[in-house]
Simulated scan of single mutants.
Amino acid sequence: MELKAAEKLGSVLRARRVALGVSQEAFADQIEMHRTYYSAIERGEKNLQIDTLQRVCAGLQVSLWVIFKEAGL
């Protein structure tokens, strides 16, 4: 079964965060987002608005288009 777009994005975001060596809680604090909400993003349970995704990308220091490309979207 193919992953949904939100799941693909979440997987890429998680990999980027882990590569930075930052915990979910610390990263969520850094981007001023509740940890449980950010956790749901990484699990692909949230359909993100572009401004929210841009906020996450800014925290990861990566452009939005790179995230889409890595997710295969």
Rank of each mutant, 00 (worst) to 15 (best):
E45V: 00
E7H: 01
G21E: 00
V22I: 15
F68W: 13
V66A: 14
L64K: 09
V22F: 07
L64E: 10
E2G: 02
R14T: 11
K69Q: 15
G21M: 00
I50Q: 06
V62G: 11
F27I: 05
A5H: 11
L48A: 09
V12F: 03
E25I: 04
S23F: 09
K46T: 02
G72N: 04
H34D: 15
G44N: 03
V12C: 06
A19H: 03
G44S: 00
A5L: 11
Q54Y: 15
G59P: 09
E45Y: 01
R43W: 02
L9F: 09
L60Q: 05
A71V: 11
A15T: 09
S39D: 07
G21S: 01
Y37H: 13
A58G: 11
I67H: 12
E70P: 13
V18R: 11
T36P: 07
E32W: 02
I31S: 03
V22T: 08
R14I: 06
M33S: 11
L20I: 01
D51L: 03
R17T: 03
R16D: 05
L13E: 06
A71P: 12
R35Q: 13
S63F: 15
K8F: 00
R16F: 09
S23Q: 03
I41Y: 06
E2F: 00
T52N: 12
E70C: 12
R55C: 09
L20R: 14
V56N: 03
F27K: 02
